[in-house]
Structure formats: C-alpha cells, structure tokens
C-alpha cells in the first residue's frame, strides 16, 4: 500500500502551477460564487467555454480533469435524471405511454445480464452503462405486447425540466472542474499553507490557524502510515479467523470492532511518541516559527485575483440587470 495518492496533485508546469495557493483558493471561491449567480443556460455555457479556454491556456489536459470528474459522474447523472423526471413545468416536449408487461420484464432481465457480462469483458464501462439505460428506455417504450403487469404509465419530459436539468448539470460541471484544477495543480502542503495564511486574520477572535494547518499537514502525512497499519491488523485478524468480507451485518460489525480497537490504541501511542519527537526538536505550540515552504505573491497573482474579481463583479451586474 505504498502508492496511496493523497489528493490529486500531479506535478507539472504551466500558469496555474506558478500561482500562489492563496490566489488560487480565493479565485476559485470567487468564480464559484459567480457561477451560482448566473441565471441562464446561455451565460453558463459562456462560463464553461471560458473555463475550458483557461484550462487550455494553463496546459492542463482535459483528460485529467475528466478523470477527476469520474467519481462525480454518477451524481451528475442522477441529478440530471431526477431533474428531468420530477420537474413538471412548462410545455411537454415528449409525452407518451410506457408499458410494463411480462415480456418487458424478460427483456429487461436479458438486457441486464448482457450488460453485466459485457461489462466484465469490455473496458468501456460508461458507454455500456449508457447503452443499458437506453435499452431500458426502448424496452419500456416499445414492448407493449403480452400480459401487462402494471397499468401503462405516462412518460413525459417538460421543457423547463430539461432546461433546469441541463442548467444544474453544467453548473455542477463548472464547479467540479474548478476545484479539480485547484487540487490538480496545488500540493496538499501548499493548500494547507494557503488556508492557514488566509485564515490568519481570525487569530484576533482566537482561531489559531497555524496549529490548524499543522494538524492538517500531520494528518496528511499519517494517512498512508495508518492505511498500512489497518492493512497489517486486518491480515493479523484474518489469520486469527476474522472475515471482513462476508457474514451478516452483525458479524461484520464485530469484525470491524476487532480492527478499530487496535487501530485506536496504536494511534494513541503513536501520537504520544510523535508529540515527544516534536517536543525534543524544540516545537512549542503557538510560538513563532520560520517556514521552509514560503509562499510568494507576485504580479501573476495580482492578475489572477483581478480577473476573478472582474468575473464576480460581472456576474453580480448580470444578476442585478
């Protein structure tokens, strides 16, 4: 378990890599707010194309961003489908009956089996999923013979439903792309340091941003170590007969406890030793320290900040008009 990647940072060159993490965080935040202020699909499409142009200028491969979208894809699809089905305003674009007969059921089962078999054999999982979803639609729509299992029902897509669903999906797409660009081009350590510096003014109200950042960076540092540990304990418990993959829920819970208890105990011991190591190297919480990783804010950051402020201002103007 040596190759656990934390975050999505990929080393590279280009405009976004050279920006100060503070700039990136602020700019992403501003642009996200502006995206939420936009009201029509047209405006969103312009925003999306601007985002894509920026990615191209910043020499970030769209493929990597798309890969970053992958885990969210399911969410996007469901948002889209629910919006389409549940939003029943405006004029209907499509409206026709759907059938569910004994043959529909047989075809559905067949389609499902074919989908699963193909999914095991081929690598185009997403395409296959869409093909399956399409075939479900076709089967429900056209297989109208045989004994009806339930009454035919009406399927309709309304104009505003379609518009809303496209709107929501594009908005999500832009936001996720933005945050992917942030995590793709910023090291986790830089990100924490950026957050630390941005939260620094909160010191007045008693928020210690330095300790906060230290906590985050130590957590990041220990994630792989703790994963390793969990792996070892799982193997150790498995060799004593624990089974983490099968059994009833109750048994599974019991097994998880056999994993969690040692992990917590070890984590406590670890934290004590770590505290000792830090103290012996003269760490005093809350004291002033110099930093090896310095952030530098230069003209590029000024430009980026100005750009994001302009975007925000523009979208506010659009909203007000």
């Amino acid at each position: 378990m040596k190759s656990i990647i934390i975050g999505q940072y990929i080393p590279g060159k280009g405009m976004f890599y050279k920006l100060d993490p503070r700039t990136k965080i602020v700019a992403v935040l501003f642009i996200m707010i502006s995206v939420f202020l936009l009201q029509t699909i047209f405006q969103l499409l312009i925003a999306l194309s601007v985002a894509i142009i920026l990615l191209l200028i910043g020499r970030i491969s769209l493929l990597k961003v798309l890969k970053g979208l992958k885990p969210i894809m399911i969410l996007l699809i469901f948002t889209f489908i629910f919006q389409i089905i549940l939003n029943r305003e405006g004029t209907p674009l499509i409206s026709h009956p759907m059938y569910f007969t004994i043959f529909t059921l047989i075809f559905l089962i067949l389609a499902f089996i074919i989908w699963r078999v193909l999914a095991k054999l081929l690598r185009f999982r997403f395409t296959l999923f869409f093909l399956f979803a399409g075939s479900v639609y076709v089967i429900l729509r056209f297989v109208d013979f045989g004994d009806a299992l339930i009454e035919p029902f009406n399927f309709a897509i309304y104009q505003s439903g379609l518009e809303m669903s496209i709107f929501v999906v594009i908005r999500l797409l832009i936001i996720i792309t933005l945050s992917t660009v942030l995590t793709l081009t910023t090291k986790p350590t830089d990100l924490t340091q950026g957050i630390e510096k941005l939260l620094h003014p909160l010191k007045r109200i008693g928020f210690d941003s330095e300790s906060f950042a230290l906590i985050i960076s130590i957590s990041l540092r220990y994630i792989p170590t703790i994963f390793d540990e969990a792996n070892k304990i799982m193997l150790a418990q498995a060799s004593r007969g624990a089974d983490f993959s099968e059994g009833k829920l109750k048994d599974k819970l019991k097994q998880v406890i056999s994993l969690l208890v040692p992990m917590f105990i070890i984590a406590f011991m670890r934290s004590e030793e770590l505290a000792n190591a830090m103290e012996s190297r003269n760490f005093v919480p809350g004291e002033k320290r110099t930093r090896i990783n310095e952030l530098n804010f230069n003209y590029k950051d000024v430009l980026a900040t100005v750009f994001s402020i302009l975007v925000l201002a523009g979208s506010i103007v659009l909203r007000v008009i």
């Binding site: 670890r270 320290r289 990783n293």
Partner: peptide, 25 residues
C-alpha cells in the same frame, strides 16, 4: 522511524527543528 517523521517530505522533516529555532529560510 514512523512516529518521529513530522514533515510531509524529507526536506520538510529535516527543516522541522530549524523552523522551530526560527532559522532564516
């Protein structure tokens, strides 16, 4: 060895003590 490695990278870890001593970057 794991419980005394504070930094995220080797460089950060060697620096940790010096950072605490406020040595210039």
């Amino acid at each position: 060895p794991d419980n005394q490695f504070v930094g995220v990278t080797v460089r950060d870890d060697i620096a940790f003590g010096m950072e605490n001593l406020c040595i210039p970057r």
